[in-house]
C-alpha cells in the first residue's frame, strides 16, 4: 500500500475534499476501487430514485425532507465514486455517466421504482437499516478514506432511519388505506433484502487473488498496489444481517403490520445483473451527458 493511502483526509468528508486528496496523490487500489464502486452505485441509484420525489411529495414539508435525504445519499455516492475512480484515473462523472448497465454494481433493491409513498418508505426503512450498520462498521475500516466517508454518512443515515421509522408507524397505524399500502410496499421490497445482505464478490475474489499471488513464485511481478486483500478494509454484509433481523421485524410488528413471507430474487447486482427497472432509469440519467462526450458542465 502506498503511504498516501494511509493518510486520512482532514475535515468533513466531501467529494471535493477527496478530489483534492486525489490531486495530491491519493489513489485507491484496484480492489478497494471495486469495493467503493459497489457502495457508490448503491447510493447513486437510490439518490436518483429519491430525486424523482422532488415536486411530487405528499406535502411540502415532506418534499423537503425527502430532498434532504436524497441529497445526503447523493453526497455519499459522489464520495465513494470519486474515490473509486482514483484507482483507474476516472472521475465520478466518468463512472456515473459512461458505464453501461452490466458495468453497474448496485444491488437491485435500489433500482426499484419509487412506487407510492409507502413503497418508498419501505425501501428507505430497509436501506437505512442496512446503511446504518454498514457505515458504522466501515468507520473502522483500515482504509482511512472509506472510514472517513462512512463517518460522515453514518450520522446522516441515523436521521434517515428515524424518518422512515416515523413514517412506517404513521402509515401502519394511520388509516386502513395507509396500512394496506404500507404492507404492500413492504411486500414489494422484501424480496430484495436477501441480496442486500449477500457477500461482496470483490472481497471474495480479492482474497482468492491474494492467496494465488502468495503461492506463485512470480509474486514480485504483480504490483503490490493492484492486488490486495480487502481484509480489514471492506465490510462483509452477511455479518450485518443479524442486526436487520433484530430490528426490522419488530418495527413492522409495532406498526401493526406483518413481516412479509415473500421469496427472494436471485439478485446479482454486484455482478452486473440488474432488474428491468434499471435500464430505463439509467438511460434517463445518462442521456444528456452521453450526447456530449468529453464536455464539462
Amino acid at each position: 500500500m502506498s503511504v498516501k493511502q494511509r493518510q486520512a483526509p482532514t475535515g468533513i468528508m466531501t467529494p471535493e475534499l477527496i478530489e483534492t486528496e486525489i490531486k495530491g496523490g491519493l489513489a485507491a487500489t484496484d480492489s478497494v476501487g471495486q469495493y467503493a464502486l459497489g457502495l457508490g452505485d448503491d447510493a447513486l441509484v437510490l439518490a436518483q430514485r429519491l430525486g424523482e420525489w422532488i415536486a411530487n411529495g405528499p406535502e411540502l414539508e415532506e418534499d423537503i425532507a425527502l430532498g434532504n435525504i436524497g441529497l445526503d445519499i447523493l453526497g455519499h455516492a459522489r464520495s465513494f465514486l470519486t474515490y473509486a475512480g482514483s484507482a483507474w484515473g476516472k472521475t465520478e462523472d466518468d463512472l456515473a455517466y459512461f458505464r453501461s448497465e452490466p458495468e453497474f454494481r448496485c444491488r437491485q433493491l435500489f433500482e426499484q421504482p419509487i412506487g407510492d409513498f409507502a413503497q418508498t418508505i419501505a425501501r428507505q426503512l430497509i436501506a437505512s437499516v442496512y446503511f446504518d450498520s454498514l457505515y458504522r462498521a466501515l468507520m473502522h475500516s483500515a482504509d482511512p478514506t472509506l472510514a472517513a466517508i462512512a463517518a460522515k454518512a453514518t450520522k446522516e443515515v441515523d436521521y434517515h432511519l428515524d424518518h422512515s421509522t416515523q413514517w412506517l408507524l404513521r402509515l401502519g397505524l394511520g388509516t386502513d388505506e395507509s396500512a394496506l399500502r404500507m404492507q404492500r410496499g413492504l411486500d414489494a421490497m422484501w424480496p430484495f433484502v436477501a441480496e442486500l445482505y449477500s457477500a461482496e464478490p470483490v472481497v471474495e475474489s480479492a482474497a482468492a487473488s491474494v492467496a494465488s499471488v502468495a503461492s506463485a513464485a512470480s509474486a514480485a511481478s504483480v504490483a503490490e498496489d493492484d492486488r490486495g486483500s480487502l481484509e480489514g478494509i471492506a465490510v462483509d454484509p452477511r455479518a450485518l444481517r443479524a442486526e436487520f433481523d433484530a430490528v426490522v421485524p419488530l418495527l413492522i410488528e409495532q406498526a401493526g403490520l406483518v413481516v412479509p413471507k415473500t421469496g427472494s430474487v436471485r439478485g446479482g447486482g454486484r455482478l452486473g445483473i440488474h432488474s428491468e427497472a434499471f435500464g430505463p432509469m439509467l438511460a434517463e440519467m445518462q442521456v444528456l451527458a452521453r450526447q456530449h462526450p468529453g464536455a464539462s458542465w
Binding site: E59, L60, E61, E62, I64, A65, N68, D162, H163, Q166, R170
Partner: peptide, 15 residues
C-alpha cells in the same frame, strides 16, 4: 405544518 409534535420538530430541522 405537521401532523404531530414528533414530525413538527423533524420538519423544522429539515426546513
Amino acid at each position: 405544518h405537521a401532523p404531530d409534535e414528533t414530525m413538527a420538530v423533524r420538519n423544522a430541522r429539515d426546513l
